[in-house]
């Protein structure tokens, strides 16, 4: 038998759950990482789809047709959040993706840095490089890239 009250309670629960999921998802965008790039890069903002393409080795050129040089920060917390927010992948899924890329000759392994300052130094001195670091750490040697 149809019970309107139960139906409303169930509906409210589902709505609440969906709100939690949406809130959790949108909350993730208030990320604690910053995308940085070498000052030679002309772009100042990228969509999440573009960042996905870059970090999966699909998008390899900047708008000025220069070859993108990606870099990875190995810091566990920042890496996990960046991969989850931008790629929807875990570190092991990301590692396996790049093992496949390298084993099939499609790309070189992106350089990985254990320390944010080392990554900033690499991005600062490497034309067309991009990376990510914890928020508040970029400094003046690199430019920051907004996520559209």
């Amino acid at each position: 038998m149809f019970h309107p009250k139960r139906f409303c309670i169930m509906g409210t629960k589902i709505l609440f759950l969906m709100c939690l999921i949406v809130f959790g998802h949108s909350g993730a965008h208030a990320a604690s990482f910053t995308i940085i790039a070498n000052k030679s890069v002309v772009e100042s903002a990228l969509t999440r789809a573009e960042l996905q393409g870059i970090y999966l080795g699909e998008k390899v050129k900047w708008g000025n047709r220069k070859h993108i040089k990606i870099s990875v920060l190995e810091d566990d917390r920042t890496l996990k959040e960046f991969l989850q927010v931008v790629l929807g992948k875990t570190p092991s899924q990301f590692d396996q993706h790049w093992v496949r890329m390298v084993t099939t000759g499609k790309a070189s392994m992106p350089p990985a840095f254990p320390d944010a300052q080392q990554l900033i130094d690499y991005v600062a001195k490497t034309p067309n490089a991009i990376g990510f670091v914890p928020s508040g750490q970029p400094g003046d040697a690199v430019k920051t890239i907004a996520i559209k």
Partner: peptide
């Protein structure tokens, strides 16, 4: 690789069949 949407390969190239054929050699990738 000319552009994002156009690249060329020549030689002996892995065959992209299904989700995993290209990477099937490496046990660590699955």
């Amino acid at each position: 690789r000319l552009t994002d949407w156009l690249g060329f390969r020549a030689g002996k190239i892995k065959i992209p069949l299904g989700l995993y054929n290209e990477s099937r050699d490496n046990d660590a990738a699955r």
